[in-house]
Simulated scan of single mutants.
Amino acid sequence: MNRLTIDVRPGDYALAKLPPGSPLPSLSTSDGLVSVTSTPDEVSVVSLTDIAPAGAKVDQGWRLLTVRGPLEFTLTGIMASLAGSLAAAGVPLYAMSTFDTDHILVKATDLDRAVVALREAGHEVHA
C-alpha cells in the first residue's frame, strides 16, 4: 500500500438514523461533509453535529479523517489499510467513500490514538 495523505477535518460529527422511508433531509454542506444513505431498513445521515436532523437517533462525538484524493477506482486496499491499522490499535471506525476519496470517522476520544496508528503504518496525517 502506498503512503496515503490523510487530513483530520475540523468540527464534531454525528451519525444519525431516521426510520425507513423518511424523507431525505436537506442539510447545508457548506461547512463540512454531509452524507445521506437510504436503505429499505433506515436512512443514515453523517453530518456536523449542529446540523444533525431533528427527531433522529443520534450518536455524537465523531471526528472526520479524509484521504486526499481524488483516488482512482482501480486502486485497491486503501480502506483495508486504514481499517487494519486502526483495528490493530483498538480504534473503532465508521467508514464511507465518495466518488473522489475515502473517509473514516473515529470517536473524538480515540482521535489521538488513530493519528498515531495511521502514522505508524506509514501514512502522512495532518491534524
Rank of each mutant, 00 (worst) to 15 (best):
R113S: 15
Y13S: 01
F99I: 09
D100C: 05
M96G: 00
D59P: 00
A52Q: 05
G77L: 11
Y94N: 14
T98M: 10
I78P: 04
G21L: 08
E72S: 15
G21I: 11
V91Y: 12
M1Q: 06
S22A: 14
P40R: 07
R3V: 03
Y94H: 12
G69N: 04
A83E: 01
S28D: 15
R63Q: 12
P10L: 06
S85D: 02
R68L: 03
A14C: 07
S22G: 00
D7W: 04
A14S: 14
T29F: 09
V36Y: 03
H123W: 04
V125C: 08
A54G: 11
M79C: 10
K17Y: 12
E42V: 02
I78C: 05
R119C: 13
R9M: 14
G77S: 09
G122H: 09
V115L: 07
A117S: 06
D12R: 14
S22I: 01
V45T: 00
T39M: 03
L105D: 09
A14Y: 07
M96V: 01
R68Q: 10
G84I: 04
H103L: 01
D12Y: 11
A80T: 14
I51C: 01
V67H: 00
E72R: 15
D41C: 03
T98C: 03
L15F: 13
H126S: 10
R9G: 00
P23V: 11
G21S: 07
T49G: 02
D31C: 06
V34L: 04
T74E: 15
A54I: 05
L15Y: 13
V8L: 11
K57Q: 13
V116S: 14
G69K: 05
L71N: 05
V106E: 06
V43M: 05
H126K: 13
L24M: 01
V8Q: 04
G90T: 10
A88F: 02
G84C: 11
A52C: 09
G90R: 11
E72K: 13
A80S: 15
D59H: 05
Y94I: 05
I104G: 08
G55K: 05
W62V: 00
A52T: 03
D31W: 12
L65P: 00
D112E: 15
A95M: 06
R119E: 15
G11P: 00
M96L: 15
